[in-house]
């Protein structure tokens, strides 16, 4: 897999030597190119900050929504269903627009571009994560709950020490998928003016008229970011498996 990406990257760079390409816009050996490149790369900071905040919040909300979904009580379970069905039905872009332009008017508050992006991404992602968590928790054998009850563990201790640690191992691949997806969707926050990777590329294209080179850089930026996340998730998966096996 990694070799394939490397190959594509090299092919793109080599083709950049041909006359069609104008790498000068981002050539680090030229002052203008260097400042353009710096401008693009600074977007990493914003994209990462945005995504990490949204991911952390979405995991908390996702878990809080997943738990009532496990209840034997129909009313409690419907909290989970209603949330998941509604939030999952709204396209992320629409949610971003609604949170940034609609929510402040409705709640009479002011909201920064950054927090509007974080809230919209976190909400949208939390519905999917709630389903991933619920499936993972439900896959744990009932005997584990019974054993925990028989040694007098409370519900929260049972979840924290017995069920969730086992569920998280099974959930990890699906959760990794979701994190990668979310990282990519953060590019949509550019539409409300958040100066992350995509927005910066758009702005540079408007001033430099070199979409090919600038967007190629943008592709590579996301590629690097996501390869790092994928490697991280795989490392975590391996680590947890060996923890259990020894």
């Amino acid at each position: 897999m990694n070799n394939k990406y490397l190959f594509i990257g090299i092919a793109l760079l080599l083709s950049g030597c041909s006359a069609q390409w104008g790498w000068y816009v981002v050539d680090p050996s030229l002052p203008a190119g260097r400042s353009n490149l710096q401008f693009l790369l600074n977007g990493f900071y914003d994209t990462i900050q945005l995504s990490v905040s949204a991911i952390l919040i979405s995991i908390v909300i996702g878990l809080l929504i997943a738990l009532p979904g496990l209840s034997h009580n129909r009313g409690t379970r419907s909290i989970n269903r209603v949330y998941v069905e509604i939030v999952r039905a709204v396209p992320i872009l629409v949610l971003i627009l609604w949170v940034y332009y609609g929510l402040p008017q409705m709640a009479n508050i002011s909201i920064s571009v950054f927090w509007a992006g974080v809230i919209a991404l976190a909400l949208s992602d939390s519905a999917f994560e709630a389903e991933i968590f619920r499936a993972g928790i439900q896959s744990i054998d009932r005997g584990q709950y019974e054993a925990a009850q028989s040694i007098s563990l409370s519900y929260s201790d049972t979840m924290r020490f017995v069920i969730l640690p086992q569920a998280i191992r099974r959930i990890l691949p699906a959760l990794g998928n979701q994190l990668v997806y979310m990282l990519k969707m953060s590019s949509l926050v550019s539409v409300i003016g958040m100066q992350e990777l995509t927005r910066r590329a758009n702005e540079l294209v408007v001033t430099e008229y070199r979409p090919l080179e600038v967007y190629t850089i943008l592709v590579l930026e996301y590629l690097v970011l996501i390869l790092i996340v994928s490697a991280g998730v795989r490392w975590l998966e391996r680590k947890m498996q060996t923890d259990e096996r020894h």
């Binding site: 019974e146 054993a147 040694i151 017995v162 923890d243 259990e244």
Partner: peptide, 17 residues
Amino acid sequence: IRANVGMVFQQFNLFPH
């Protein structure tokens, strides 16, 4: 009652992690 009653299961139900 649970605090005073221990139970052993057919499938052991040890915590594998």
